[in-house]
Nucleic acid binder design. Structure first.
Lengths: 330, 330
DNA sequence: TTTAGCACTCATATATTGACAATGCTAACA
DNA sequence: TGTTAGCATTGTCAATATATGAGTGCTAAA
């Protein structure tokens, strides 16, 4: 599709633009490609016809189009080793064996965000399909209990229960025993149903204050934590020149605050996926690089959000490094 | 200090500026105060001498200074009832009895943020001074356990423990029993010490694989969750005209992302406290209204952050309404 | 196929201008 | 003594002009 020189030219323009954020002129390139600026201009205008380059105005230098970035990422980009300095920075996190997986990921992503000037997002997997493996109830004081639910995958969730009326400890114990017997093995998102159709009729027969108790447990067990979302380094990303006006920044901040939009980032495919501009469903001016991970039975997605003009090779190397080291230790 | 007319004038200027975000001219006021614009100008220049008003440039109208807002809040502001419409919006949250306190607060604050165009921050109280009331350990698979710590105030915290070598269930049980006996009643931030100086020597004697176990528990029990911080409605606040340029917004966003700065918001005094401009330790252009709460044994601080030009009376009324309704039900 | 050269276009920066909205001050007034 | 009318002054804001420079497209020649 593109000949050798055209490919080189596109590579140079994309990489130069990524570095400088300024439209690339023909003159700037002729030294590198050993020909005159006029020749470059001819080639450039071909790449523009193909839709890989764009001008910001009629007499400006060239800028990669969305399609141009896509082509670059798909056909030109070469995988690159993480450079020593960056690796060193991450190593201190990797080697800190006392970190749990969650912390390892979020700390690494904090560093990555700083190194790349991108916003890091960590989406913890929802545990809706986990199954209950144990329910424990601990009294705190007269009217408050804590119910703890542990799932087969090691997810823990707890709820404060308030029981306003006086209920005998025995009643509570009986109810908990029943619940324990009946809901173990149930998926978290099915617990409500089981409580209503299986547990309720039975405790109604055996437990005196069954209504109060049932209600307390029902509300506690039907609203489990949604998947967790953490975000760091929005400030880093917003320093980039593409976000140089107030309205653009406001727009991006609004989107980051919109749970629905952020939730959509969750990834199904394995490995690293790159979404550019309109492919992101987030904003035409950004690229999102996503990676699903799975380690120690936990899974989730990490993503980096930033301008389309990002160092794709570096970002990929970083994410791969994080994934590698996730398996080993933590 | 200020005579009647001066007080009225300051009140009018502050409130007009809060409403319109434009410097207030003498002409705009003379109708309200029944005198000529020249008279107003004389009074204005007195208020400027006193430091209560400022000009944005030499021939502009007047704007309240930081001191002016302070004076307004301290001496002029009249407490106001929450208007019906706003109350109605909050009522749906208040009446939803299935909400836990945490959710009640965060949902209310989301609404308040929208109604006021301010950023809402909810700082959950750190539980460092809670005392351990129960430790429970649940095995998940061969190498993973979950340790659950419950405090006297009903705070629950859990950790995944990974034990790489093979350790007998009996050893684990013994260790947990010992830990349970020895650390109950200890403050969370003291647990590390107790483990090291009291538990360690004992398990060293009685438990075979004591080193592996000790290390696993030690790392799990010395890093408890910091206080939780949630923030909503940054976008609302950033829409205000005082944040009309990219750098200002970036600056504010950076501060919101800086944990140290945000942590400082935590309040010790009871009731509602208002910090204006330089008093905030956050940014000279913002006001922070803070309120400490305590209900159901939980405590924390909620805060609203926005431009100094905020509707102080409304904000106070809203926070008070939230506090009132916190005690009653949830 | 490549290149030199030139006309053309647009962004950016800087001045210039006029209209306007306030103010401060002074002198007259009640 | 406090209030007011009137006017010069000052700054903002938006529109317009002007110069400069960077870059392109195109054409004709190498």
């Amino acid at each position: 599709m593109l000949n050798d020189r055209q490919t080189k030219l596109l590579k140079i323009i994309v990489e130069d633009y990524i570095k400088t954020a300024r439209p690339v002129s023909s003159k700037a390139i002729c030294d590198i490609l050993n020909c005159s600026s006029a020749t470059i201009r001819n080639e450039m205008s071909y790449l523009e016809e193909t839709g890989l380059l764009e001008k910001t105005h009629i007499s400006s230098g060239r800028v990669p189009s969305e399609k141009g970035y896509r082509y670059y990422v798909d056909h030109i980009l070469e995988p690159r080793e993480l450079n020593g300095e960056d690796m060193l920075k991450l190593q201190t996190i990797v080697n800190n064996s006392s970190l749990m997986l969650d912390d390892y990921i979020s700390k690494s992503m904090e560093i990555v965000s700083e190194m790349t000037n991108l916003t890091a997002i960590v989406l913890g997997k929802s545990s809706k399909d986990n199954c209950v493996s144990k329910v424990e109830v601990v009294p705190i004081n007269e009217h408050n209990l804590i119910a703890i639910v542990i799932t087969d995958k090691g997810h823990v969730e707890h709820k404060n229960l308030t029981i306003k009326e006086n209920v005998s400890i025995n009643d509570i114990k009986q109810t908990v025993d029943l619940i324990n017997k009946m809901i173990i093995g149930t998926q978290l998102n099915e617990v409500g149903k089981v409580l209503e159709y299986e547990v309720k009729p039975i405790i109604a027969r055996y437990v005196k204050q069954h209504e109060v108790l049932y209600n307390a447990f029902y509300t506690a067990f039907t609203d489990f934590a949604k998947e967790s979302v953490t975000m760091t380094g929005r400030k880093n990303m917003l320093m980039q020149p593409e976000f140089n006006n107030a309205d653009k920044i406001r727009d991006i901040i609004s989107k980051f605050e919109d749970k629905e939009i952020v939730d959509k980032i969750e990834e199904n495919d394995n490995g690293i996926n790159i979404y550019i501009g309109s492919e992101t469903e987030f904003d035409d001016d950004v690229t999102i690089v996503k990676m699903k991970y799975e380690a120690n039975g936990e899974e989730g997605t990490i993503a980096l959000v930033g301008p389309k003009r990002m160092e794709y090779d570096k970002v990929i190397a970083l994410l791969e490094y994080i994934k590698e080291n996730m398996k080993e230790g933590n």
